[in-house]
Design a protein around this nucleic acid. Structure first.
Lengths: 134, 134
DNA sequence: TTGATAATGATACGTTATTATCAATAACCT
DNA sequence: AGGTTATTGATAATAACGTATCATTATCAA
């Protein structure tokens, strides 16, 4: 039995496909609320629980990662982007990816401290929101 | 009437003095829970509500600022420290101040985006927790 | 097609953090 | 000292986010 036809209990559904597609296609991390809204355009009556369940599944399948910004609900993005950080727009509430990272983080570390990870978040106005009122 | 003896409704209490003293003397940001615990050693029967109220008052008096780390309760620290960032210990749950800041943040910003502020948080083990089990 | 069962959606429940309520208490001006 | 009233503490109420439950529906191997 090579590739195995054994089902390990995971079924393919419209909601999972749609959510996966949205996450894969998005250039910015999305919250459960944003996912629900986006996916609801294609799936009628989609429930929040399903979004949470799908996200949880993709999360521990390693397909997506969570993006936590203080005060904001957790967002999710595909995990195959490189290391990067985020920009949170104070007006439209969206979160964007930033390219690159600071390299000199460790120099601000006190002796004996061990870093396991870090996060950098910028706050301000995104291009769309920064442009003058009219 | 020069310096005025007019009361503008703010009274000096043991709880406020104590909380202010703790915040001024702390080298790291403290959460409401941490404040409550620390202050309870000096004030018997101190209530949470009082801590929240006092923190809120100090906050909009500009005496303290809030420190938000994803997943953690908001912490507070005196606002007269210079610009700095934080280290969150994954073991003991305490948050520490880091000296200095990265200067090249703006170079990771997309065109037209306007930064108003930024935050950098490192995660790992503090000196105390990093030291081997025994 | 059908049957076993995974997945869904509605909703109740659980958390954690914070605010509102209100009677009892304590500050502070006179 | 005394009285006005800001402050306190206990607790109920909110709010935001996430999980558990469960009857119904849909997937998929046979």
């Amino acid at each position: 039995m090579l590739s195995s036809s054994k089902h390990e209990g995971r079924r393919r559904t419209k909601q999972r496909d749609t959510l996966a597609k949205i996450l894969e296609g998005s250039e910015r991390p999305l919250s459960v609320a944003e996912l629900l809204e986006a996916a609801s355009e294609r799936i009628d009556g989609l429930g929040v629980a399903t979004v949470y369940r799908t996200v949880a599944a993709m999360l521990d399948a390693g397909e997506i990662e969570s993006v936590d910004i203080p005060g904001e609900p957790t967002r999710y993005e595909r995990s195959n982007k490189g290391h990067h950080h985020h920009f949170s727009c104070e007006r439209c509430e969206r979160v964007f990816d930033l390219a690159g990272c600071l390299e000199n983080l460790r120099k601000m570390l006190p002796p004996k401290f061990q870093v396991r990870s870090h996060s950098v978040a910028l706050y301000g106005l995104c291009a769309a929101c920064a442009r003058p009122a009219k």
